[in-house]
């Protein structure tokens, strides 16, 4: 047999048939996701027995879950670190390097300042901040690949994941501010 048996309990990497690494080829992930949903989605079993339909829903749900977890670099890192026995411990471990916190505070203030401004100026300022944040997050996502796949430095990877989650929250706040500014 080519691969171990796949069941509903298989881990996400096995399920989507991709290597268990932080680096992922998104095109392959996309293709495998589509291939799998093409088999398991309830619409493909609409004329089958009730048991088949229930199973189809469970499988399709699981495949969606796997795809969501592996598609986003941050979610993928959390999941992978968990499989490797390292809990990111977002709730309990809130210690951050002081310079990171300083930078975050400055960004947050900039977001608040931008919201005070009116109309198009506010929108442009917020969009600029969002772009800057994205550039930074992309660089740190590359660093995550290095820490996990190459250096196997899981403790450092956990620290970086926590920082990235902080930034993701900030990104959501900017998104929400943009929603308000453009509504």
């Amino acid at each position: 047999m080519l691969a171990p048996d796949l069941t509903l309990a298989s881990d996400y990497f096995a399920l989507l048939h991709v290597p268990r690494t932080q680096a992922q080829d998104v095109a392959v992930l996309d293709a495998h996701f589509r291939e799998l949903q093409g088999r398991v989605h309830p619409d493909k079993h609409a004329h089958a027995t009730t048991a088949d339909q229930r199973l189809a829903m469970q499988w399709a749900t699981r495949v969606n879950e796997a795809y969501q977890a592996l598609k986003h670099p941050l979610a993928r890192a959390r999941y992978l670190l968990g499989l490797l026995g390292h809990d990111v411990a977002v709730e309990t471990n809130t210690a951050m390097p002081p310079e990171f916190l300083m930078a975050q505070m400055e960004l947050r203030e900039a977001v608040e300042d931008a919201q005070v401004g009116a109309g198009d100026t506010a929108i442009r300022q917020l969009e600029t901040l969002l772009d800057q944040l994205h550039v930074r997050m992309r660089a740190e996502q590359a660093e995550l690949v290095r820490l996990i796949d190459t250096n196997h430095d899981y403790a450092a990877a956990c620290d970086l994941v926590r920082q990235l989650m902080f930034q993701e929250k900030l990104r959501d706040e900017i998104d929400a501010a943009l929603d308000r500014a453009t509504a």
């Binding site: 080519l2 691969a3 048996d5 796949l6 069941t7 399920l15 989507l16 048939h17 495998h32 291939e35 799998l36 093409g38 088999r39 398991v40 027995t49 048991a51 088949d52 199973l55 189809a56 499988w59």
Partner: peptide, 15 residues
């Protein structure tokens, strides 16, 4: 039904 679905998934990618 469960076995058939597992087999189908298996075929989808590993085959």
């Amino acid at each position: 039904a469960a076995r058939r679905m597992n087999a189908s998934v298996q075929r989808a990618l590993t085959g």
